[in-house]
Amino acid sequence: MTENTHRGGLVSIGELSRVTGVPVRTLRFYCDNGVLESRRSSGGHRLFDPLTAVDQVLLVRRLRMLGLSLSAIIEVLTGTLTTADAIAAERAALDTELGLLSWRRASLRAVEEAPPAERARRLELLASVHDRHRAHDTLVTFWRTLLAPIPPALFDGFVTMNIPHLPDDPTPQHIVAFAELTTHIADPACTAAMSRQLWRTNPTRIHDKLALVTGVAEACAAVDSLGTQPHTGPELDRFIDAHATARRDRDTPRLRYRLLDDAPDNDPRIHRYWKLTTEITGTTTAGAALDWLYRALAQWADDVHPR
């Protein structure tokens, strides 16, 4: 028992500081902020139970070194949060912060590396999508509106394949492509072209939109696995059948010609949208599959049933 140890087994703040290596002023700070409990002597000095206080102070110091907030540490000490959960929450918050910093760094580099004549336009473009989560949500909303009434499971699959998430450490090129992509869909002419690529007509003329979206998705999935030049076959037949079913029609040359005539697939806005998406995702998109099906339909018209 030292000179700073009091009756009842309690220790002074100086003794607790000596044992734990934590400065007295820090211990006072912990007490004042509700992190560490103490009692008062008759003279008003802080006293601590060495059986619990030492372990608590050491735990607080270690958690603080990992960057945990005092509020999280208090929850750990009171048992409302486990140490593992507190650390997991801090890591998740750090991951989010690092993602924001990576986005910001890549954005700064994108402006810095732009030719002087393009720098002002680049700055304006990137400023319009400074919040990448909101920009991603804008893309999701765009497609949710366009694809309604697609089932949630099918839509989630479409999102995974066709709406890009930026990598954890994006390049300036990724940032610029993503920014241009999200501003691209703000153009009503682009929205109209993308709608026509999907429906091949005014959407109000489609009797069964769900059947069309489902059937076209199946045709696109089949195309994605081919990796060949466009040609007539079961993939194109499935595509035509989806449109016929949705229109309460049959697969006839007349329908095929109508789908070909109504196709906007050569619209540069569509090509630009899917090109930007591919630059970010690095994967085959629905746009590439739809283009394959359009060219297969054109091949059918030229080689099999010339007008």
Rank of each mutant, 00 (worst) to 15 (best):
L16E: 05
R18T: 11
V19A: 14
P23K: 04
R28N: 05
G34C: 04
V35Y: 01
V35R: 02
S41M: 14
S42I: 15
G43R: 12
L47M: 12
L58R: 10
M65E: 14
S69I: 03
L77F: 07
L77E: 06
T78G: 08
T80N: 13
A84I: 11
A86R: 03
E90D: 05
E90S: 07
L94H: 06
L100H: 04
S102G: 01
R104C: 03
R109K: 09
E113L: 11
A114Q: 02
A127D: 04
H130P: 06
V140I: 02
A153S: 10
V159G: 00
I163K: 00
P164D: 04
H165K: 02
D169V: 04
T171K: 00
Q173G: 04
S195G: 10
Q197P: 07
R200I: 05
T204I: 11
R205N: 09
R205T: 13
H207W: 15
L226H: 01
A246F: 03
R250A: 13
P253H: 06
P253I: 04
R256W: 10
R256C: 02
A263H: 09
D265I: 15
W274I: 02
T284M: 07
D291Y: 13
W292L: 03
L293R: 12
L297E: 11
L297T: 06
R307Q: 13
